[in-house]
């Protein structure tokens, strides 16, 4: 049977002991060793990222604010099938579908499109399941983080904030 008391996951485990202090420990000599350690840290490279001037790079798979894609002709890809809303574990996505009128082919790729598409950014957990569920490759999570605001209502993002701008470069 494994003796769980001896396991050390970090490899840095130290057993607590109540042994008598040595003479040097009683004279607080080990403080000098500690001062050496702090002095070593004094000259170490600092970990601080000077934020507004200097930004830490995101991971390539970072999941940030959503974007609703357009195709190469500038038409919205979303067909309002609702699979993303079903997949969403946080139930952050709602949409209302509408039928494409003749003459709107340059706006919407499919015959059905999302008239209203809203994501509640306060509910969203940025899991990326909407992106996986989408059969039309219409929704993606970008590297952008949602802007901070004072009002909770602003965090319900509509199509004005989600749909890709015509000139926008994504990823």
């Amino acid at each position: 049977m494994t003796d769980y008391g001896t396991i050390s996951l970090t490899g840095r485990k130290k057993d607590v002991s109540q042994k008598e202090m040595t003479f040097s420990e009683k004279m607080y000599i080990p403080i000098l060793k500690g001062m050496g350690i702090t002095l070593k840290h004094f000259f170490k490279k600092k970990v601080t990222v000077q934020y507004p001037e200097e930004k830490r790079e995101f991971s390539p798979v970072y999941r940030g604010q959503h974007i609703l894609m357009r195709d190469e002709n500038g038409a919205e890809r979303c067909t309002a099938c609702g699979l993303c809303a079903v997949a969403c574990p946080a139930e952050a996505i709602t949409m209302t579908s509408a039928e494409r009128k003749p003459g709107e082919e340059h706006l919407y790729r499919e015959e059905k499109y999302a008239a209203v598409y809203e994501i509640n950014m306060l509910r969203c957990i940025f899991c990326g399941l909407c992106e996986e569920a989408c059969p039309k490759e219409a929704i993606f999570l970008t590297e952008k983080t949602p802007d901070s605001e004072y009002n909770r209502d602003i965090f319900i993002f509509g199509k004005d904030k989600l749909v890709m701008k015509p000139e926008q470069q994504v990823l």
Partner: peptide, 10 residues
Amino acid sequence: VLAGYFQDRL
């Protein structure tokens, strides 16, 4: 500042 430097900050 020294407190920062001793703790690997600025």
